[in-house]
Design a protein around this nucleic acid. Structure first.
Lengths: 344, 344
DNA sequence: CTGAAAGCGCTTACAG
DNA sequence: CTGAAAGCGCTTACAG
């Protein structure tokens, strides 16, 4: 509870000197520096962030907006973001949109605007025009990952290319009957990933001269359970079964592997499976996948955002539309192989 | 960027009246109320939280400290806590301890103290004496879940009883050869759960006149992978195999189910499995479990903490040691049944 | 290098 | 019910 005044008194200097010594922003004589540090330590002084915020207009807090927190992808983002922000001396405040329209509105109209945050970091969030305008009006830089967003900076993989790469991997192994378990067109991810990943799959097939089979695109919800159910339908169909399944997320890939096993099918002998994400458990499942290195992506994005905040000069545009493409990587493990028909 | 001054000007009243009208803390004439509301809406005014914090000493932010965020239990806590806090008009700032000693020290010595938060909500965190003292000195109320903590309020299940209940369920079905997959004694959970759950298991067996078999307690790390590996060792041992396995977490239960299947064993015909948590995927796996209703527990705990903050009177002790026991519930699903030997 | 003082934008006793 | 003014605890031009 000790304030700067008490530290100044104990150190025998003015509050200005205390502030300067502790912030390191201006030179202070070695002697004064020492006295201040001793006094601060003795009193256990830590500057009040509200007062700091008043005086500087900075909160040293970044708002992170996510659609879910209890799904692996988002929790990995959250964990990496927190660690990186902490390193830079920033706090992370969490805004979770999953509570529906009301919660979302409250967050955008009230919380995010209340000068609580210096910037906004979003993951798989698409802004409404009004939301973006408000954020711009209050001079909040935005950086998004997990898809591009109009009017803001983003760092994102090329989802079309990622899906095409996964599909091409299966094609190159000799598969011709390739199904896809993807997302619902207008899904709660509120984002274009499902559509883009489907497009990549379609394009890859078409390039290989294969007509995409409508019945072999199954929408699910990106969870293990969703993948399991979809895969059961696909693999249990007596009228014809694919030899490979591309899943738009690794979690759906896990579900697909389990479904295959439960049907008595062997992976990859009877059916190949590939996902997208490189989930923490993918190695355990031996799942082939397309990695976007979420953790590094997040760390890179946080660094970038903080650079923007701290390098901001009056007159600079707050937000510009600009996507930095983040590289993807094919990781081949044990769930993809040549189809049985082409073996000898 | 509009300040209270501009609103006052536009509404033709003083800033005091604006503040009162918007906060609703004092009566304001209907006319003034209306003028203020209009003006605020027109200007898109939202009070600065730093200024609010300066004036009131409140931040309306709660610090949430967790050891992990990318594990289901903690992410469920985080999601529920955020939603509940938001409802009360509080922000959640995230403090993740997983980055090791340095990150932890920085959080406790610097961030949590910087008058950034009104209170601290912890999940499965054990404080050091110095940490607790600092928090008390800066008058931060603490509420913990996921285990009791000395010197602070907690809401927590009885872990010994939960483990005993799971074990008793297996015993009641007729199992005598019951193994346990638990935690490492001094685990990264930095908490007593592993030990307490083992104690509950031991006690239940002893009450049933069964001597716990040292070789049948396997430590793992609470993950699916960890559970899988442990279960493989248990179920593959040629010298003798348990008929039931109690896992200290549902995730280890999932791993155990997969291990059994991969060994060609049927669950529950050849081996029964029960966990603790009622994970979101437990229903999908058909896993019998002990539920602690994490989400409701978290919401209840947040309500409680906010009541403490807002009802605080000078002279009240900041933190008192007091545990509220949270009820548990046995949920029997498809992975537990009588042992084969006792069937006919 | 250092200090006195203004100022950041609110809230809230205190008067009226 | 309302307003003038003090005060919250810092930072930072401005002088010296």
């Amino acid at each position: 509870m000790a304030g700067i005044e008490e530290v100044a008194k104990l150190a025998g200097v003015s509050t200005a000197t205390v502030s300067r010594a502790l912030s390191g922003k201006a030179h202070v004589s070695a002697k004064a520096q020492d006295k201040v540090e001793r006094a601060a330590a003795e009193l256990g002084y830590v500057a009040s962030s509200s007062a700091y915020g008043m005086a500087t207009g900075k909160t040293r807090t970044i708002g992170v907006v996510v659609p879910f927190v209890d799904r692996w992808f988002f929790s990995a983002v959250l964990e990496s973001a927190e660690t990186k922000m902490r390193q830079h001396g920033y706090d992370l405040t969490l805004y979770n949109i999953s509570g529906g329209e009301d919660q979302r509105k409250r967050i955008f109209d009230e919380f995010l605007l209340r000068k609580r945050v210096d910037a906004v970091f979003t993951c798989a969030i698409k802004f409404g025009d009004a939301e973006l305008k408000n954020l711009n009006r209050t001079k909040k830089p935005i950086l998004g990952i997990g898809g591009t967003v109009s009017g803001a900076r983003t760092i994102s993989i090329d989802d079309v290319a990622a899906a095409a790469l996964a599909t091409d991997h299966l094609l190159a192994l000799g598969h011709k009957k390739i199904a896809m378990i993807g997302g619902h067109p207008a899904s709660e991810m509120e984002f274009q990933q499902p559509n883009m990943r489907r497009r990549g799959y379609d394009q890859a097939l078409e390039r290989a001269g294969i007509e995409p089979n409508e019945a072999w695109y199954l929408p699910a919800d990106f969870t293990i359970k969703g993948g399991y159910h979809a895969a059961k339908q696909l693999l249990g169909d007596p009228r014809g079964v694919p030899t490979a399944i591309f899943c738009a997320s690794d979690e759906m890939g896990f579900g697909t592997i389990m479904a295959a096993k439960d049907l008595g099918l062997r992976v990859p002998e009877d059916v190949s499976v590939i996902g997208i994400d490189n989930h923490d458990m993918s190695e355990f499942f031996g799942l082939s996948t397309i990695s976007q290195n979420v953790r590094e992506l997040t760390e890179h994005a946080v660094d970038r955002l903080i650079k923007i905040i701290e390098g901001f000069k009056d007159g600079d545009p707050i937000n510009i539309e600009e996507n930095e493409e983040w590289p993807i990587e094919l990781i081949v493990r044990a769930t993809t192989a040549r189809p049985a028909s082409s073996r000898r």
